[in-house]
Design a protein around this nucleic acid. Structure first.
Length: 262
DNA sequence: ATGGTTGATCCTCAA
């Protein structure tokens, strides 16, 4: 059986309910992982997604900020959501499909503007969150697992529009890239997007602040799909849906897709 | 070096 999964930072699911419906209708992923739903779970707009065949969901929400959800056509069991770095934020939820695959959906803290934990508490919290993800992966020894989400780090030189000019910009600093690499190594996670598309620039986010995001094209690859080695060979068909950034009243992130033959 | 935009909620903070 082949299933297709997508991850998308939606930046308010209540405001962009229609955009989610459009993606579900046009692309029909079996599973859609959302970040920054910005709502408590009880106010999540389920009805239209249900009507489109997405009858299953696991989620962690909070009022106004953060929040993660996994919408699925396939039955999915809630297997927990952890409060990494003890921030009291809804930034992780995990679900298990009937084929035994576990999906972890993450929204890693953005980290503020100054890349120094002495001057900026949020940067320290971001690094601590990644360190706890590393320790968790080391202890968990994940198998048949997929980890997706807005990890808020663009690790490679070709994951950003200009490597040199972003070295001191939060999301591409060497210390963040090192923390992300340690998290990835601890779970033996394979970067599925780069397994499928090893060469060339890839972006999944473009700032709202650019006058013309498309022409300027100052993007970063902040959104990731990882898999454990026992199923990474089954992955194929990765895509980043750049045109979604041009939809009406868009999120600043676009969906990242991957398929698995399992 | 600076300012640029968006969303939710409260009149500012986070991204």
């Amino acid at each position: 059986m082949t299933f297709t999964l997508a991850t998308w930072n939606i930046n308010s699911v209540r405001l962009r309910e229609a955009l989610v419906c459009r993606l579900l209708q046009e692309e029909a992923p079996d599973v859609l992982c959302l970040q920054e739903i910005k709502t408590p779970v009880e106010k999540f707009p389920l009805e239209q997604f249900h009507a489109l065949g997405y009858r299953h969901m696991v989620a962690r929400g909070q009022k106004g900020y953060n929040g993660v959800a996994i919408l699925s056509k396939l039955p999915i069991t809630d297997v927990g959501g952890r409060d990494f770095a003890t921030l009291g934020h809804a930034r992780h939820v995990a679900g298990q499909l009937e084929n035994g695959v576990t999906i972890h959906n993450f929204y890693v803290p953005a980290g503020g503007d100054i890349p120094d934990r002495e001057q900026n508490v949020k940067f320290g919290q971001k690094l601590d969150f990644l360190t706890e993800m590393r320790d968790w992966a080391h202890a968990e020894k994940p198998q048949k697992a997929i980890l997706v989400g807005d990890l808020n780090i663009a690790p490679r030189e070709d994951d950003v529009w200009n490597h040199k000019s972003l070295l001191k910009i939060v999301s591409h600093t060497p210390i963040e890239v090192e923390h992300l690499a340690q998290t990835q190594d601890a779970g033996a996670w394979v970067d599925v997007t780069r397994q499928d598309i090893p060469e060339g620039r890839l972006y999944s986010w473009w700032s709202y602040r650019a006058a013309d995001w498309d022409a300027a094209d100052k993007g970063r690859r902040l959104d990731h799909v990882w898999a454990t080695p026992d199923i990474s060979g089954a992955a194929h068909g990765s895509r980043i849906l750049r045109p979604v950034r041009g939809w009406e009243q868009p999120s600043d992130h676009v969906p990242v897709f991957a398929s698995f033959d399992l």
